[in-house]
């Protein structure tokens, strides 16, 4: 019998701790598939961030360094400069990357570090219980924006994929979603491209994945999944914002 579906070898055979309906698990799988695709598992050093994905090393069968909150891109810079032969990626939430770690991500991108950044945008701080994030949509209620995000006071949500695409050092920047089979297939293609940039030594690649957080959105899994494709994708447009080598 032909096997048509199996666990990527870069993923461990364990259950994740993610809530039902959370997209972190799907995004983990796409990262693992991309690693398998290029056969880089054995030379990969992952950089974990602080957030719901902090247990990266529990799920990926790769070497991992845990970074302080927001500093993953700086840690990855140190790793990659010291071991240029390794494949280095960070995996960061929106609080981690777009709030506390803004300086680190912008400058790693601007230096064109030869790393891949996986950015998980779920419009909230998942791990700490659903506070307002820099990506929280205007009007969205969170535990620290109980009346809804107010653009005049809190600013508008930051579109990181577009913002980083403007920097000379960035070779690839895209935004994907994993809320439907169709979007997952496309996301898989974009993850492959993002990884290929580093595999071929072509510079900094950034991939933003819209992600559901049913727990902190106060929704069931289906409604949360639905929100990703509607409200979120309306503001955070899916697409490729930079692809310097037309991979």
């Amino acid at each position: 019998m032909q096997q048509v579906f199996k666990r990527p070898i870069s993923l461990k055979d364990v259950q994740t701790h993610f809530c039902p309906g959370c997209h972190h698990g799907t995004i983990h799988r796409l990262v693992a598939e991309a690693m398998d695709e290029f056969g880089v598992q054995g030379r990969t050093i992952g950089v974990a961030s602080v957030g719901c994905s902090v247990f990266l090393y529990g799920y990926f069968d790769i070497d991992v360094v845990e970074a302080p909150h927001g500093r993953a891109a700086a840690v990855a810079t140190g790793v990659k400069r010291a071991r240029p032969d390794s494949f280095v990626f960070t995996y960061q939430g929106d609080g981690d990357l777009a709030a506390i770690g803004t300086a680190e991500i912008i400058h790693a991108a601007n230096r064109g570090e030869d790393i891949t950044v996986v950015f998980v945008n779920n419009t909230t701080y998942g791990m700490t219980g659903g506070q307002m994030a820099p990506t929280t949509l205007v009007g969205q209620k969170t535990s620290t924006s109980p009346y809804g995000r107010n653009q005049h006071k809190d600013g508008a949500p930051i579109r990181m994929a577009e913002l980083l695409a403007q920097l000379e050092g960035v070779a690839f920047s895209a935004r994907v979603a994993v809320n439907s089979p169709r979007n997952i297939i496309d996301a898989k293609r974009q993850f492959k491209k993002a990884f290929r940039y580093q595999v071929e030594g072509k510079g900094f690649s950034f991939i933003e994945a819209l992600s559901a957080c049913p727990t902190n959105w106060g929704m069931n899994a289906l409604a949360a999944n639905e929100r990703v494709g509607t409200e979120m994708a309306d503001y955070f447009r899916l697409g490729v914002f930079k692809n310097t080598d037309n991979l």
Binding site: I45, V47, V65, A67, P68, R71, A74, V75, A76, T77, G78, V79, K80, R81, A82, R83, S86, A103, E104, I106, H107, R111
Partner: peptide, 22 residues
Amino acid sequence: EFIQAESEIASINMLLGASATG
């Protein structure tokens, strides 16, 4: 490798990353 980092926060974390590789 010499990097003039964007801040002392970034530079200590680059040190952390490099040291982790030995």
